[in-house]
Every structure is written in structure tokens, then in C-alpha cells.
Design a protein around this nucleic acid. Structure first.
Lengths: 189, 189
DNA sequence: ACCTGAACACCGTTCAAGT
DNA sequence: ACCTGAACACCGTTCAAGT
């Protein structure tokens, strides 16, 4: 507390937390320095002292998202089922904070977000018998599919069809198709 | 030409065209009313008279993109090859103006963009023998795949793998996997 | 019908000044 | 070390005033 002005003292962690709440509930555009200052009960300029400028603040937000991503565990007996379970778990986790995921994606931090599952999936692909030189492609395709289903979650329902299609159904259809293809590749190799 | 002020007269078409060039070459964020006015050689406020506000201007830009999308023709002998050719043609066309595609997507106009190919692909799916009640899902999945490959084009290369993977390769892998799955569904039905 | 500048309410950011 | 208000250069938009 600042005795002279009557305004609260603020920490960097506090700034980041409130900023994260604004992004989660009102979207990235709603994160303005003035609104943030208001909700913190501090002057706009004090934010700059703690976290640098808006760009660095968003970077800190993304860093925290990545750090918060707990290590996901594979479930199932076969490599196919274990890969599917990892993809679903990742998707579920990312869907809790889609706004922040979009921010992370814009800043090319998607790789970092996928790091926890990346190695686990690669291991399952090896068990499955996929040739080593096809692992990179498979990982990329799977990651694309997961991130897509999170980033495009809002639009998929109104994707211009006569009947509405469930987002999960689309996700599962393509995931199954990819796993079929990977198993086929492993079999012929 | 306005004789009194020496500034050029401007038409709505002109505004939209210059705005489109700014978006294509410098991105959507670069499209500010003041910059647009500068490049047009007119006052900021005259833009409002011709195209309404920024929001309506972007809508007009998207409308024009959709209108410009020529009807794409399928190539190949089999339904599978014809669907693949439509997906590739669509992708190629959208890749010419990725910034505008992103704008159209944000505004939920993706369905309209896909309208030209939507019907053509549905026809091929019917020839292939896919049950009618699975057509909507297949269309949605294919559209998701095409739009993804355009929207995520910038990030795919740095997607955090050891070796870089070609974007076209990822696109073709998943496309082939989906077509395999659809053919299998058609066969068992 | 068309174009204009002035004005308003927003942005992010810098900086000198406080304690 | 931490917080502040004033000021600057940007935004989009409105409006009364011109021709």
C-alpha cells in the first residue's frame, strides 16, 4: 500500500494473473493497459515498471500457459489407442483456454505447447513400427489437427452445412483417418 | 477532381481496391483509415461517406474475395482423384490471398468461400458411394483441412520438429488419409 | 451528392518527477 | 525500488460546415 496516494502496491505476478483473467473471459482485444490498470487499482504506468510493455506482458502470459500444461499420460493398450488418448487429452487441455492458445499460436509458441506430448507420441509411433524418417511428418500432421480443432472451435459449427455437425465428431473422424494411415504405413514397412 | 481543394474524387470501388492492396501486402492491421485516406489522396472522412465504417469496408473486401473465387473444375477419372483435385485447387486459390482469407474466416464467411466446391465435392462423394447421412461430416472435415492449411501456413514450418517438414507434404498426408477413410466407408456401406 | 477539418474517446508508450 | 500524471503519437468515428 502506498500511504501517500492510497493506491495498492502491485506485483508482477498479480499483473499477469489479472491480465490472464481478462484474456480468458473477454478475449485478447479486451486486454488494454488502461483496463488492466483499472482492475488492478493502480496507475497505467506502474504496469510498465513490473512487466515491461504489452508485448512482454502477453509473452509472460503465454509462458505461464506453457508452464501450466501438466505432463499428460497416455492411456490404452495399443499404440493407436495411446496416441489417440494423448491427442484427446491435449485437445481437452487447450480447450480450457482457447484465447490464450490463439495468442500462443500467433507468437509461434505452438511447438513449446506440444513439447510434453511430442516425445510421448514419437515413442508410440516407434512402437507402432512407423519408419523413423516418417515420424516428423506424422507428428506435424497430428499437431496441426489438434491445434486446428482448438483454434477453429468457434467456426466449425456454422461451417455452412445444411445440418450442423458436432466438432468432436469432425475431430474424431480425421484423427481416426490419420491413425489408420499411420498403421498402414507401419504394416507395409 | 475537386476544383476548390485540389484533391481527387474517390469512388467506393477505388476505396475497396486500395484497401485490398494494403491488406494483401501489409496485413489487416496495416489497414487504418488514415493510411487508406493517404494512399487515396483524400480526407479520412470521405471514406466514411463511400463505404461506411472500417467494419463495413472489411465486409466489402471479403464479399469481393468470395465473388472473385471462380468456379473450380474437378480433374481426374475417379471420385477420389476429383475430390483431391478440388481440395488442391481451393487451397491454391486461397493461398494467393491468405490475409483476406483470415479476415473472411474471422467473420464466419468460410462457408461462403467454400460454396463453389461444396456442391462439386458432395456430388463426387455420392458417386464414390458414401452414405448420404455421412456427407455433411465429410464435407466439414475436408473444409477444415483446406482452411487450416491456409490459415496455419506461416507456422507450420517452425512447428517445433527437429527436421523441417514441407507444408504441402503435411497437407497431402492428411488429405490422403481422409480419402482412404471415405473410400473404406463407401465400400462397407 | 460529395468532401472537408475539428473534435471526441479511445489506444500504447515515454519520461521527468515524486516518495 | 516503486508509483505517478502529463504528454505524445497513434487509432476509429461523428458532425457541422462547406461546395
Amino acid at each position: 500500500m502506498n500511504a501517500a496516494t492510497g493506491t495498492k502496491s502491485v506485483t508482477a505476478d498479480e499483473v499477469i494473473e489479472v491480465a490472464g483473467r481478462i484474456v480468458d473471459t473477454h478475449g485478447a482485444d479486451a486486454l488494454t493497459m488502461r483496463r488492466l490498470a483499472d482492475e488492478l487499482g493502480a496507475a497505467v504506468t506502474s504496469i510498465y515498471w513490473h512487466v515491461g510493455n504489452r508485448d512482454e506482458l502477453v509473452d509472460a502470459l503465454v509462458d505461464r500457459l506453457i508452464a501450466d500444461m501438466g505432463t499428460l499420460r497416455a492411456r490404452g493398450a495399443t499404440p493407436r489407442e495411446r496416441i489417440a488418448s494423448l491427442a484427446r487429452a491435449m485437445r481437452r487441455q487447450l480447450l480450457e483456454r482457447p484465447q490464450l492458445v490463439a495468442l500462443a499460436h500467433e507468437r509461434a509458441r505452438t511447438p513449446a505447447m506440444f513439447q510434453p506430448v511430442q516425445d510421448a507420441i514419437a515413442r508410440e509411433l516407434a512402437v507402432m513400427g512407423l519408419p523413423g524418417d516418417e515420424t516428423a511428418l506424422a507428428l506435424r500432421a497430428l499437431q496441426m489437427h489438434v491445434i486446428t480443432s482448438v483454434l477453429l472451435i468457434r467456426s466449425i459449427d456454422r461451417f455452412g452445412a445444411q445440418e450442423p455437425v458436432d466438432a468432436v465428431e469432425v475431430f474424431e473422424f480425421t484423427l481416426a483417418a490419420m491413425l489408420d494411415a499411420l498403421e498402414a504405413r507401419a504394416r507395409t514397412a
